[in-house]
């Protein structure tokens, strides 16, 4: 499950420590944006050391430096032995994802890591990236999510980034479409106003309604709102259980067409009910039988 993904600056011991108790589904340890150019070596060693020593229950994602930075190979060389769940490629392109996948294969082999175990999350934050979203999503078997980076994208689109997000509406939809077409997760950009407790809920609700599977956060304060928005609602779970019960009863009675509350249960309703129940089960939200 990737409902909430929390960014942690890679060179901050206290944030890396505190990350272990944060209610996020995934932690993104950032070696790129959050680390000054002359501290890349320090952050790399700090993250490596933290992963070797501290117990993290969340999925670990390493945000590596861009493919034109001269740091990304060292990032991977240092971090692959720590077996992160995924690495996040910055300013992703088809070429960058392929390069990353190739080096991962090589390093997994060298470090006795199960081949293909480490996924790639492609951070899409350029106009070209949005245009090629599906190609990026399918550039490697390793790609397990597309992730929208709206701040850089807005700059590339030469428009102002707003709280309402009208300027990224199309990109969000496009990204969801590409990710779902490729059968992978779509992760929404972080909400940047740490003080706005209502704004984060509205922004997460919007992302969920567009089809995103989760949302990143730059502040732990946003995590509970994100988790709540991206978890199945109690009424949705109740409805899904009713759908399943009706289908089972129909099967027992040999009925071809099953209805619930006067409405026919067709294949999409059944499929959606199954998705809700799968998510609910993973989150321990199903009522005890």
């Amino acid at each position: 499950m990737r409902r909430s993904l929390l960014f942690l600056p890679g060179n901050s011991p206290v944030m890396l420590q505190n990350g272990a108790v944060m209610p996020a589904d995934a932690l993104i340890m950032d070696l790129e944006d959050a680390v000054a150019p002359d501290q890349k070596d320090a952050a790399r060693l700090l993250v490596t050391s933290a992963l070797r020593t501290l117990d993290y229950s969340q999925e670990i994602i390493i945000r590596i430096n861009a493919s034109d930075s001269g740091h990304w190979q060292q990032d991977l060389t240092a971090l692959v032995p720590c077996r992160p769940g995924a690495v996040m490629t910055t300013k992703s392109s088809v070429e960058a994802v392929k390069q990353t996948a190739e080096l991962l294969t090589e390093l997994e082999r060298a470090n006795q890591v199960t081949p293909g175990a480490i996924g790639i999350i492609a951070l899409i934050e350029t106009a070209l990236g949005v245009e090629q979203a599906y190609e990026i999503a399918t550039a490697s078997e390793r790609v397990s999510a597309l992730f929208l980076g709206a701040e850089d994208l807005a700059a590339d689109l030469r428009c102002e980034r707003t709280k309402e997000g009208t300027e990224i509406f199309y990109s969000r939809s496009r990204l969801v479409l590409a990710a779902r077409a490729a059968g992978i997760d779509a992760i929404d950009t972080p909400f940047t106003d740490v003080q706005d407790d209502e704004g984060i809920i509205a922004d997460a609700e919007l992302a969920r309604s567009l089809g995103f599977s989760g949302k990143a956060a730059i502040s732990p304060r946003h995590l509970s709102a994100i988790n709540q928005v991206f978890s199945p609602r109690p009424e949705a779970i109740r409805y899904a259980l009713a759908v399943m019960a009706a289908l089972e009863q129909g099967k027992r009675e040999g009925k071809g067409v099953v209805a619930l509350d006067g409405k026919m249960i067709d294949a999409p309703i059944a499929a959606r009910a199954e998705q809700v129940l799968t998510a609910a089960e993973k989150l321990g939200l199903l009522p005890e039988r």
């Binding site: 070596d41 490596t48 050391s49 933290a50 070797r52 060292q74």
Partner: peptide
């Protein structure tokens, strides 16, 4: 008040920098 893992990382970084063998 650094944890052991932080002490290890910082010390290794400083030594590598001082030896001009950064990773």
């Amino acid at each position: 008040g650094a944890l052991d893992c932080t002490i290890r990382a910082r010390l290794e970084t400083a030594v590598r920098r001082g030896a001009e063998q950064e990773v």
